[in-house]
Design a protein around this nucleic acid. Structure first.
Lengths: 197, 197
DNA sequence: GACAATATGTAACGATCGCTCGATAATGTG
DNA sequence: CACATTATCGAGCGATCGTTACATATTGTC
């Protein structure tokens, strides 16, 4: 059995609140006081449970990857290349167009630039974006083995191109594009990609 | 003649330094102390010359639009639609791949998210991104009048699509893509756009 | 019930934040 | 030279930053 006084809060629920706040305001735009109030936990308890701000941010980022960002994993798991591409755009549009959470990607809004003393947050976000790109590349390699990858295309170039398109949609969403507009933009991209529905 | 003691610094040069710092570290990541030291001007003189931090940021953003961001204006001024598209991607690649300045776009790194008390910086960046999009749309309208715009495409959708692609390249650059990689990514985009060199 | 262990809550730490006051220095005007 | 005007400079304002110390409360174990 676990010794000592039990925590009065649910750890995952509290992390969800922190994730949401970092997602909306970014690492530097979110203060520990903000987090304490939103999570309903006193600062000292946050430090005891999650460590310092950087560690809390890393945990919130991991929570993001594990839950909301699964839309991309779902796309990557599609059995065919065409299914993957379609799902990647469809799921991204649905995700970015949702009103249940901030209209952009945590890995962009969390920290895209920062002061000299908080670079680790920026580097973590970049690492997550690159990891996403790496997952796309793996999926394309699998498609090539299956003979589905377009002839004449280079895997690395195509990976960066897809990553650019999806990042671009996230910026569009941050610019205020509605779900319908995102959908139309994605349809243009799909048509130019030569992927039929 | 101008009365009083003359300023000891060049206003545009000082703004360039501020622009550079905001570009690298973002609005929230750049402190007035950082700015004061980098610009070589004491805080009180900065306030006297440029106003508060928000005003300085707005001036730095305007300076960005007037000088480094002219690469996009140059592209928009190309006489033909094809010339515009090619120049848009070529100039963007060259800009993002340059080592003379931060490897991304001020309008993204300046402020993509922020705390509740600094939203005006974020809104200014969004406004600038939307203004850029608006300029692209105007160029496409001109192309349609000239009969150069691809049949079957919608102007608004195509505008957002182009904006997405170019924003996506900026994220790629922020991810650490080299100039050569950006170039290759842009070539894939151009090929899918159906624009021949 | 004594005790170890863990969580909570209060209060505050030193540092940094954006910003400003007041004295001093340097200019053109009369 | 006297004066108005503007810039520079040192010092420091109140507020907030991330973080922590410490006393108190609540648990399981013995």
């Amino acid at each position: 059995m676990k010794l000592g006084r039990p925590a009065e809060f649910d750890k995952e629920a509290a992390l969800d609140v922190a994730m949401r706040l970092f997602w909306e305001r970014g690492y530097e735009g979110t203060s520990m006081a903000d987090l304490s109030q939103a999570m309903g936990i006193h600062p000292s308890s946050i430090y005891a449970a999650f460590g310092d701000k950087q560690e809390l941010f890393a945990l919130a980022a991991k929570r993001y990857a594990d839950v909301p960002a699964q839309y991309m994993v779902k796309a990557l798991e599609q059995p065919t290349f065409q299914g993957f591409i379609l799902a990647a755009f469809d799921n991204t549009v649905e995700f970015l167009g949702s009103k249940e959470h901030p209209s952009s990607c945590f890995t962009l809004t969390g920290a895209i630039s920062c002061g000299t003393d908080t670079e680790s947050a920026k580097l973590l976000m970049r690492e997550m974006r690159l990891q996403n790109e790496s997952a796309i590349k793996d999926r394309l390699l699998r498609a090539r083995k299956a003979g589905e990858f377009p002839k004449g295309e280079n895997i690395d170039d195509y990976t960066r191109y897809l990553s650019s398109l999806l990042s671009g949609l996230a910026i569009q969403a941050a610019n205020g594009s509605t779900r319908a507009e995102l959908k139309r933009t994605a349809e243009v991209a799909l048509r130019h990609l030569g992927v039929e529905r």
